[in-house]
Amino acid sequence: MKKKLYLLLLLITPLFLINCGSDDDGPDYLAELVGTWESTQIVTSNCPSADDNGTLTCDPFCINIEINADGTYTLQQANFDTQQIETETGTLTVTETTIHLCEDGESCDDNDPATYVKTSNTRLTVTFTSDGCQNAASFVKQ
């Protein structure tokens, strides 16, 4: 009888040790960015026209973006030519190093994602190309 019990325990024990996989799907990169981010400065370089290169200090603001947990965003951008604030809404996809904004009503297959570096819980740098220029925007979480 002891032999059968020992054999039964020997056969059952591995079933308790088998790992079916982790319940953790890895980091939730979107959750790390949820909130309102306000730009503090934008550095523009490598523009077709050298006159467009430079540093813009955002006072009172250049770009504000609100990132929501459901994968949507609202972006407000100052248009310095018209002195108006332009608002854009859409959805976004976030990976470990990129953020891809897709404006509502637009085809986003050919949009280049921006690269971001989160330097702390309250600071973020986003690099992107616009009008042939390389841009690095610094943001602070509000």
Rank of each mutant, 00 (worst) to 15 (best):
M1F: 03
K3M: 04
K3L: 11
L5M: 12
Y6T: 06
L7M: 14
I12C: 10
T13Q: 07
L17T: 12
I18Y: 10
N19S: 14
N19D: 06
C20F: 15
G21V: 03
G21S: 12
D24E: 06
G26L: 00
D28T: 00
Y29Q: 02
L30V: 02
E32Q: 10
E32D: 13
V34K: 09
G35I: 11
E38N: 13
S39E: 08
S39L: 04
S45R: 04
P48V: 05
A50E: 10
D51E: 01
D51A: 01
D52V: 02
D52I: 05
N53V: 06
G54A: 07
L56P: 03
T57A: 12
C58E: 09
C58M: 10
D59I: 05
F61M: 13
I63G: 03
I65V: 15
I67A: 06
N68L: 09
A69H: 05
A69F: 02
D70S: 04
D70R: 04
T72S: 14
T74A: 13
Q77T: 04
Q77H: 03
N79M: 04
F80V: 13
D81F: 12
Q83H: 13
I85C: 11
I85Y: 12
E88S: 15
E88F: 15
G90E: 13
L92R: 12
T93V: 13
V94R: 04
T95P: 07
E96L: 09
E96D: 11
T97N: 11
T98R: 05
H100S: 09
L101K: 12
E103C: 07
E103W: 08
E103K: 14
D104E: 15
E106P: 02
E106V: 08
C108E: 01
D109S: 15
D109K: 07
P113K: 07
P113T: 06
P113Q: 03
A114C: 06
T115R: 03
V117S: 15
K118N: 06
T119R: 15
S120P: 08
N121M: 08
T122S: 14
R123L: 15
L124T: 14
T125I: 10
S130V: 01
S130G: 08
D131S: 08
D131L: 05
G132N: 00
A136P: 00
A137N: 00
F139R: 09
V140Y: 11
K141I: 06
